[in-house]
């Protein structure tokens, strides 16, 4: 694992790195991050404190997990608009199994099946979505949109718009505890990042995802089972949504359908800020994680400055537009220099 992380951070020349060397690309993001930290600490003396970093450490993972769930579909040339509600449904599955196992008194015998079933529910949702995309040729935007409407309806129908709460302490530990001072959600997130990087750089599936993201038919002609690979893209995305759902449920000690809905935009934003190609085929995990940290620092900074929550929403939209416009201009300039 250490070796892989080192490889990621050292900026192995990956696909699409021809124009910008990967290391420099990461360096630019680190510079932005550093600038932001300096800026916020200059504005507020409460920024450079342990409390800020603790809050970032606990908030980053759920957003990060959803971003990972968004990353793979975008790499495959699609999009998964159902990530947040998929996470909600998996959270609900976890909650129900725990309720059935005794609520706040449920022990490990209920927790382990609850987690497994939550993950399975995510995989099943992803499989259905993936099968629709891969086998019927439906557009991923439409398919995931319909799935999102369905899941939201399903969740609201089953919970009657309310929330499910009251979990055993083990679950609370997952969301709020720490291991040797490191928050448990952060550990889970780091693990998932490692797995994602491994899948994308070192497995046949990951290889296929990049190829089919650029050209599905040419990849199929090369003897890759593109239907299977495309289905797996959404299965993986669904499983990662489930992990996010579990972390979210345990952090808030409750599950409500619609929770985290606003994250959808930020996951897309993190991917594009992390230089993932919106048309698929190019993008790596490391810059996306850096982009996430940047966004989380901005979020915490705004929070600390007492920025209105809605103004922050508007800002996210504005940042997404600026990032895309800057990418466009950068592409023009780089093209002219070549």
């Amino acid at each position: 694992m250490k070796q892989i992380l080192a490889q990621l951070l050292s900026g192995k020349p990956g696909p699409g790195a021809a124009s910008v060397p990967a290391a420099r690309e990461n360096l630019a993001l680190v510079a932005v991050l550093f600038g932001l930290v300096v800026l916020f600490s200059a504005i507020s003396d409460r920024f450079l404190t342990g409390a800020t970093f603790a809050s970032i450490a606990y908030q980053l993972p759920e957003l990060g997990l959803l971003t990972l769930a968004m990353l793979i579909p975008i790499l495959s040339g699609g999009l998964n608009l159902a990530v947040t509600f998929s996470a909600n449904i998996s959270g609900l599955v976890l909650a129900w199994v725990l309720m059935w196992g005794g609520g706040a008194d449920a022990g490990l015998t209920a927790l382990i099946p609850a987690i497994i079933l939550a993950l399975v529910s995510g995989a099943v949702i992803g499989w259905v979505l993936g099968a629709v995309v891969a086998y019927t040729g439906a557009h991923p935007i439409l398919a995931s949109l319909a799935m999102m409407i369905f899941l939201r309806g399903l969740g609201e129908f089953l919970t009657r718009g309310g929330s499910v709460s009251g979990f055993p302490p083990e679950v609370t530990w997952l969301g709020q505890g720490n291991v040797m001072g490191i928050p448990v959600p952060l550990v889970i997130f780091a693990l998932c990042v490692g797995i994602w990087a491994l899948i994308l750089t070192r497995t046949r599936l990951g290889f296929a995802i990049y190829q089919l993201g650029s050209n599905l038919e040419a990849t199929r002609y090369s003897g890759i089972n593109t239907r299977w690979a495309l289905t797996m893209v959404y299965v993986l995305s669904g499983i990662m949504c489930a992990v996010a759902g579990i972390v979210m449920a345990s952090r808030f000690n409750s599950v409500r359908v619609g929770h985290g809905e606003a994250y959808l935009l930020i996951t897309v934003l993190a991917c594009f800020l992390g230089r993932v190609d919106p048309f698929g085929g190019f993008g790596r995990v490391a810059p996306v994680i850096l982009a996430l940290v940047i966004l989380q620092v901005i979020g915490s900074g705004l929070n600390l400055l007492g920025t209105n929550q809605h103004l922050a929403t508007a800002l996210w939209g504005g940042i997404l537009i600026s990032v895309m416009v800057m990418r466009f201009i950068w592409g023009r300039v780089a093209g002219r220099m070549r």
Partner: peptide, 17 residues
Amino acid sequence: IISIVVTIATFNLFFGL
């Protein structure tokens, strides 16, 4: 910029403002 990305952004921009 692809239209879905633009309108996700303007959706949040309009609504937030």
